[in-house]
Design a protein around this nucleic acid. Structure first.
Length: 164
DNA sequence: GCCAACGTTGGC
DNA sequence: GCCAACGTTGGC
């Protein structure tokens, strides 16, 4: 168990499911995660109310697109039971589920997109897991990191406004 | 589309 | 339980 961490970053490929999709749909099960570390964070550490940076991966540009919030605790990932799903895993059964996922809901727009490039430029963000384990799709962020990214999004908007 | 990084699988 | 082979993620 991790104590005191209440902020997360979750990756999604926007071609498959974007922040705008979440905003339209209001909430979604974070299904399809097939990595044990990411699963364990969802199963054991994520609590209802935790805030989430919704990150667009495999994208041009990649970066943080908006804010979400955990809206339900982890439950068995139904997509693993569905033989027609790309996330099907025959080793996971309703009697003995292997994969779990939380539900997240749309929380807030960011004043602007915060690209991976901008994150890399911030000395205060150099310890983010994002920059050191690019493979982990669900990861904790500190309160400081979360707030700084929100601040960057605000600054971006001010800057681009001033240039107009 | 390439490929580095790294998680997973399975033979031994 | 090691580790080589393989598959996947994700930045560029």
């Amino acid at each position: 168990m991790i104590s005191g961490k209440r902020y997360w970053l979750m990756k999604s490929e926007p071609d498959l499911f974007s922040f705008q999709d979440l905003k339209r749909r209001k909430h979604t099960r974070w299904d399809g995660v097939r990595n044990y570390m990411a699963r364990n964070y969802m199963m054991h550490d994520m609590k209802v109310g935790d805030l989430v940076l919704f990150y667009h991966s495999n994208s041009n540009p990649s970066g943080v697109a908006g804010i979400a919030r955990v809206s339900a605790l982890a439950a068995p990932d139904e997509s693993a039971f569905d033989s027609t799903s790309p996330y099907f895993d025959e080793r996971s059964t309703p009697q003995n589920p292997r994969w779990f996922c939380v539900e997240v809901k749309y929380e807030d727009d960011l004043p602007s997109f915060v690209s991976l490039n901008e994150i890399k430029k911030q000395p205060q963000l150099k310890n983010m897991i994002l920059l050191h384990n690019s493979r982990l799709s669900v990861q904790p962020v500190t309160a400081t990191e979360f707030k700084l990214i929100r601040e960057l999004a605000r600054q971006n908007r001010v800057t681009s406004g001033a240039l107009r």
